[in-house]
């Protein structure tokens, strides 16, 4: 019998699931100071008629709906349309709005990868990221390790991401310290010249717009 334990050499630990993994603790500990503060302010805003619960949910939905696909569409347009690319490099926020993306008050700078230059984005002070265009940043982007090492040893960090850059390429790190947000305009992969704009957008990864990766190969 498969569930007759007498002859099994595996064993069960106290507190382990049937598959042998520890149960994850419930996350119902006491609220932190800042969690209480957030709830208090949210409830006050609702009580005083400044906001409705539906508006808050709607805003969360809008934030969750933003994804790297928005940035990928911008990059693909820049690859196929030199005039758009010029506008993107002079004012990336206006160029993104021109494509219909509602990015609010975002101040965006696009930095272009070339055969001589590779760009990498970081926010050493916190987690600044072009969320209004790309959505939420990846968890590693917010870690102390990435934030401190990206400015201290960017090439070592890039190697860990699988990017081994020759010395002929200058690495330019951009620390989002104040009001600007950044997007890397990666170089168009060789062999993708005949692809449509939509096909090109599928090559553009989130990491290629942070600078920790390159676009997919066609």
């Amino acid at each position: 019998m498969p569930h007759d334990h007498h002859d099994h050499d595996h064993f069960h630990h106290e507190g382990m699931s049937p598959s042998g993994h520890p149960y994850r603790a419930d996350n119902d500990g006491p609220l932190t100071y800042w969690q209480r503060m957030e709830i208090a302010i949210r409830e006050l805003l609702i009580e005083k008629g400044q906001l409705t619960p539906a508006e808050i949910s709607g805003q969360i939905d809008a934030m969750d709906a933003r994804s790297p696909a928005n940035g990928a569409a911008v990059v693909a347009r820049a690859w196929v349309d030199p005039a758009f690319k010029a506008r993107l490099l002079s004012d990336a926020a206006s160029a993104s709005r021109e494509m219909g993306f509602d990015i609010g008050p975002l101040n965006l700078i696009a930095v272009e990868n070339t055969p001589q230059t590779h760009n990498l984005i970081v926010c050493t002070l916190c987690s600044c990221y072009p969320r209004n265009l790309l959505g939420l940043p990846p968890d590693w982007y917010k870690t102390r390790e990435y934030r401190s090492r990206a400015v201290r040893e960017p090439r070592a960090v890039l190697q860990e991401f699988g990017l081994d850059l020759p010395d002929t390429v200058t690495v330019r790190v951009h620390d989002s310290t104040a009001d600007m947000r950044y997007i890397v305009l990666p170089a168009q992969p060789e062999g993708s010249e005949d692809m449509t704009e939509a096909e090109l957008a599928d090559l553009v990864t989130r990491d290629s717009m942070i600078g920790t990766g390159l676009p997919r190969q066609p």
Binding site: V151, R152, E153, P154, R155, A156, D167, T170, V171, R172, V173, H174, D175, S176, T177, A178, D179, M180
Partner: peptide
């Protein structure tokens, strides 16, 4: 920024400063 400890001296870092 890093002097002799720099990983690659001619690489650059841009930051926004008031």
């Amino acid at each position: 920024i890093w002097g002799n400890e720099a990983e690659n001296p001619s690489d650059t870092l841009d930051a926004e400063i008031y």
